[in-house]
Computed example of a mutant assay.
Amino acid sequence: MAIFNTVAQRKAGFRLALFSCLVAIVVLAMGVFTRLADAGLGCPDWPTCYGHVLWPTDDHEVARANEAFPDMPVEHDKTWPEMIHRYLASSLGLLTIGLVIFAVRQRKPEQPVKLPLFILAFIILQGMFGMWTVTLKLWPQVVTSHLLGGFTTLSLLWLLTLRLNNQHWQVPAISETKLQALKPLVLLGLVVVICQIALGGWTTANYADIACPDFPQCQGAWLPPMNFSEGFNIAQHIGPNYLGGTMDNAARVAIHFSHRVGAMVTAAYLLFLFFKLRQLGMAPANKAASVMLIILVVQIALGISNIAFSFPIGVAVAHNLVGAFLLLSQVTISYLVFTAAVNRGGVRV
């Protein structure tokens, strides 16, 4: 079973949706890089950058920008990532508008229209979160929501691509019972991965990545001092500048430690799901399970490498991107399981 269906079997708009997914991956990568490079406030205003469409470049412009924002002087290594990320995100919005127009003009009973409209509305909301990230000075709740919004946007675009691809599993009748039993399991796998991504977002939003600089222990202990009540206090006040974080060490350790435990739970459950998929006895299901397992192994290796090599930004960005691919694998498996057709002697049910 090929990854993509034949041209004749695809629905209208497939290529545009697939291209939008690729752009969404670039936007996500650039957003992660901006965050990890501490460039989230590289431009203290929104939507401009120190009042510029791009960013201040010559000495005169920089002097005026520093005068206007004395508490946030211009740092060129932080202005350009922020603005490039904004423009890439805007281009994704334009592509989604194209998807909506395409869906409406090509409207047929089997052509998705509601999903492109929902994606467009969600991207508008995501743009608002991007603005609040700056105006609320990296408030962790907003930063985490913005990150989750990026993953959600990519997942929705990929779901649209799958629907337009119009490819479904053909499950033999003998495996129907196993298929029905698999449906809640794959949904739970999707939820588990989402929760782990949310934990990762909360970790980076509160600068807890380096709270445990050693592995497998944390600060030389299996159970270091931790403050979960402060680490997961979502009632933090709006107002301080959260650049660099405001939590104490015990709170950040609690967040990082929870992310590690979440990684073990996620790995264990996805390994369980791997074997359940293989029990269907279908080559396409085996392939999907194998792809999921490969992504999981790479993600674990990147997580350990982050710590072993003292969190190099390249590895950290890759860790986020592979996390996105792990989420897409769950979206794909869920879609294929729930749209599978049971073949009863040549009759699709």
Rank of each mutant, 00 (worst) to 15 (best):
P284R: 03
A283N: 14
N165L: 05
A288S: 11
L94M: 14
D248G: 12
L179T: 05
N343A: 05
H60T: 14
Q299F: 05
T96Y: 00
H168L: 04
M264F: 10
Q196R: 02
Q9I: 12
Y50Q: 12
A17Y: 05
A211P: 03
I123S: 07
N66Q: 07
A121C: 12
F33Y: 15
L190C: 07
S229D: 11
I84T: 15
E61M: 14
I238D: 05
F311L: 06
I307M: 08
P172Q: 14
S258P: 09
L88P: 04
G200C: 09
V134G: 01
G42N: 04
I97H: 06
P225M: 02
P116K: 10
L293E: 00
L54S: 06
Y87R: 11
V74T: 02
P184H: 07
P312G: 04
R348N: 10
Q106T: 14
G13V: 07
G149R: 00
H319L: 03
A121G: 12
S20P: 07
C212N: 13
G200E: 08
N320K: 08
I313H: 00
S310I: 08
L327T: 13
T332L: 15
R10Q: 14
D38K: 07
F228A: 07
G244I: 11
V100P: 06
F69K: 04
A254R: 10
D45H: 06
A208L: 02
I123W: 01
P184E: 10
R278I: 06
M247S: 01
H319D: 13
T57V: 13
T203F: 01
T161Y: 11
A263V: 14
A12V: 08
L223Y: 04
A39I: 12
I333V: 15
W169G: 00
A29T: 08
V23M: 15
V192P: 03
T133W: 04
I304T: 01
F102I: 06
P70W: 02
L182D: 13
T96L: 09
P213G: 02
